[in-house]
């Protein structure tokens, strides 16, 4: 499955882009589009419900490396960003810190990158008063963008580094935001490509191998990158390299990343002196009865 194929199908059939994505999915997986729509609708419902429930809250996470970031960002309020971006950042941190404390999340596209999509959709719902029915086409399209990446490359940090997880989540979020803001297929393509290009080469190097540092805050930074990419694309800025080819590049970059930088906890930030000290401290924390 390529994004070009979905765009072509939309033109040939006259269907909206997200409907064409559902038809393309049926052709490949055999899944009934109405069942897929219902299932995705349930995922989006949980995303919005959890965002509302966890928003700006402190969490007691498994390792204690994170847990207060959403609350800090929420309590401080807007500094330089728009209200929209601020809400997206706080929602993103909230979901990731909930994930790190064994909360309920939607692994869209993965558990480690589960904060980006809630950031975009919760901000649209809260700040721009998008009703659920208007958000759903964007969520379907986001899933389709992720599916293109899964088919052409990977969504796994262990296989392709963080670019494949949070990078993919950002591409899905940027594409959805551009689409829901009235962007056409080319605008969506550019939005997704622009942010994936910007996160190309991002390594997966969590401290101790745990889904906390830097994963939680990376989700929040990535959601701002996704919003920036959508805004650029909507203003007419195009990606020199189209989305499908950007995904190909991401796959090749992932293949050349050494094992140390693919979710092993051996390279990058995980190999720093501070990380090693923190891991020792976490081990002590776990040994307490």
């Amino acid at each position: 499955m390529t994004f070009n194929a979905i765009k072509r199908l939309a033109v040939d059939s006259g269907l909206p882009l997200h409907e064409a994505a559902l038809v393309a999915d049926m052709t490949e997986s055999g899944n009934n589009p109405e069942e897929t729509r219902a299932q995705l609708s349930e995922f989006l419902r949980v995303i919005l419900e959890e965002s509302e429930k966890q928003y700006g809250k402190a969490q007691d996470t498994l390792t204690g490396l994170t847990g207060t970031n959403a609350k800090k960002a929420h309590d401080r309020g807007v500094l330089y960003h728009s209200r929209f971006t601020h809400v997206a950042i706080v929602a993103s941190l909230s979901i990731c810190e909930s994930n790190a404390s064994m909360g309920r999340v939607v692994a869209c596209p993965t558990a480690g990158a589960s904060g980006v999509i809630p950031g975009i959709f919760y901000a649209l719902s809260k700040e721009n008063a998008f009703p659920f029915a208007h958000l759903l086409p964007g969520f379907i399209l986001a899933s389709a963008i992720g599916n293109v990446i899964a088919a052409k490359a990977t969504l796994s940090g262990a296989a392709g580094g963080c670019q494949a997880e949070i990078g993919s989540a950002a591409a899905m979020g940027a594409g959805a935001l551009a689409y829901l803001s009235g962007g056409d297929a080319e605008t969506v393509d550019s939005a997704a490509a622009l942010v994936l290009k910007s996160l190309l080469g991002l390594v997966c190097d969590p401290v101790g191998g745990f889904v906390e540092a830097p994963c939680v805050k990376r989700n929040a930074i990535a959601v701002t990158a996704a919003i920036s990419a959508a805004e650029l694309a909507l203003s007419g800025v195009t990606s020199v390299i189209p989305f499908d080819e950007t995904v190909d590049a991401m796959r090749r970059v992932g293949q050349t990343l050494p094992m140390e930088l693919r979710e092993t906890g051996l390279g990058g930030l995980a190999a720093t002196r501070t990380a090693k000290q923190l891991v020792d401290r976490i081990q002590t924390r776990f040994q307490k009865p």
């Binding site: 994505a21 997986s29 899944n31 299932q39 995705l40 939607v106 992720g146 599916n147």
Partner: peptide
């Protein structure tokens, strides 16, 4: 993969 696999699961 399919859209449902990418969009979820709830976990």
């Amino acid at each position: 993969m399919s859209l449902v696999n990418v969009g979820g699961p709830v976990m």
